[in-house]
Design a protein around this nucleic acid. Structure first.
Lengths: 215, 215
DNA sequence: TGTACATCAGTGAACGCGCGTTCACTGATGTAC
DNA sequence: TGTACATCAGTGAACGCGCGTTCACTGATGTAC
């Protein structure tokens, strides 16, 4: 070995810088937005020289790509708590999914916001996000189809209702977690999850009039 | 007068060019997106020289600002059909609002998309959009408050539920009208309005269990 | 263990591309007499 | 109605700013003998 004071050798130093750049990027994205962020903003925030950036990434897009992969890797570790139901007529099942989504967005706000911005400008990121969402969308649609077969009434075609649910959750999260919330009103996780869950449970369940299915 | 072949004089000619630039801008925004659109893309599309742009606008932002004002002016002409109810327990009232919104977005997709993109990069546009939404949001919240006072149960605080409704409608519209819809599935106005209406009506109305309020 | 050389992470000044913006010019429209 | 001049919309080549990207250089880490 021989490293005088530095903890590790060259590899470790390189990894440190790469991590510093990624963390700096998240902070800069959160502050100025992905599209406004300059490469030198990121390197300055990380306390490195401009040229250093290109030893680790080919450009801003690839850096974001890496952040996306990191996010998904972490997400996969957490998700899939075995003990959760997929029966959306059970409010607890809906709540579980809503809460998981809310926590995911909270934990990854910078990256998610950056991805949305990138998708507005770069068709490749837009397509990427669409492909990421698709399985989830069909998964939800399947659950809804199940409700319908069990005699429940849906507000429309399962796939369309699934996009409505996704739209509701994602934009609601944008409003309260990413964008500027209306005039300083704050929203805790508890209230957010409660409201979304109730809205969705009633929204996808058939209309109240008619013989009430006693829960 | 004396104009040889041109229909009008200088003012008319100027107005023509300005209109041509605005229309060209909408087409370019729809094709490449607001953020990717270059000034010369717009002038070329309009069949004018690059310098011409600055006789009419100070920059891309001000052009978008004009398109926004045009959109709002047209919107004000149409909206406020006197014969519509504000009682959201009446599905017909909800449907009326949803349909109006859907038609508005359909008619103004390019500008709305451009505004969303601009808001991602320019805080002034973001603030502008927030201020545009606020009255509508409080209006909806008031209607919901009314339901609550009449004994109905809401999924949460009226203002929060109002943002949920707005989130649902706007992102659903983005999904099906502006962004790429999932794998080629098409959605007609009828189906869109039906699904949204049903989802919202059930979503904001209290839970089925308990004494059913006979509609 | 010690010396000489190779490799590599990081540096930061400089380069150059893309594009917004300007401006001297043109030809047509409007005004004065 | 006719002539001389003023104004203005539009032109497009050229300028220059901002920023991404490069590259010769430095000093430290690793390797050979």
């Amino acid at each position: 070995m021989g490293g005088a004071e530095a903890v590790g050798g060259r590899k470790a130093r390189s990894a440190e810088t790469e991590a510093a750049l990624k963390e700096a990027a998240k902070r800069v994205f959160a502050r100025s937005g992905y599209l406004n962020a300059k490469i030198t903003d990121i390197t300055t925030e990380a306390g490195r020289a401009a040229g250093s950036f290109y030893s680790h990434f080919t450009g801003k897009e690839q850096l974001l790509e890496q952040l996306l992969l990191d996010m998904l890797a972490e997400g996969d570790e957490q998700v899939e708590d075995p003990a959760h139901s997929a029966d959306f007529t059970d409010p607890a099942a809906v709540r579980w999914h809503v809460a998981a989504y809310w926590r995911f967005v909270t934990a990854n706000r910078e990256v998610i916001l950056a991805l949305q911005q990138a998708a507005m400008v770069d068709e490749r990121f837009a397509e990427r996000l669409r492909l990421l969402m698709e399985p989830t969308l069909h998964d939800i649609a399947d659950h809804l189809e199940h409700i319908r077969r069990a005699g429940g009434r849906l507000p429309g075609d399962p796939l369309v209702v699934a996009t409505a649910m996704a739209a509701l959750m994602s934009q609601f999260a944008v409003t309260w977690l990413l964008g500027g919330a209306p005039q300083g009103r704050e929203l805790g996780e508890r209230e957010a999850v409660d409201t979304l869950t109730a809205f969705i449970v009633h929204g996808i369940t058939g209309p109240p009039p008619g013989p009430p299915g006693t829960a």
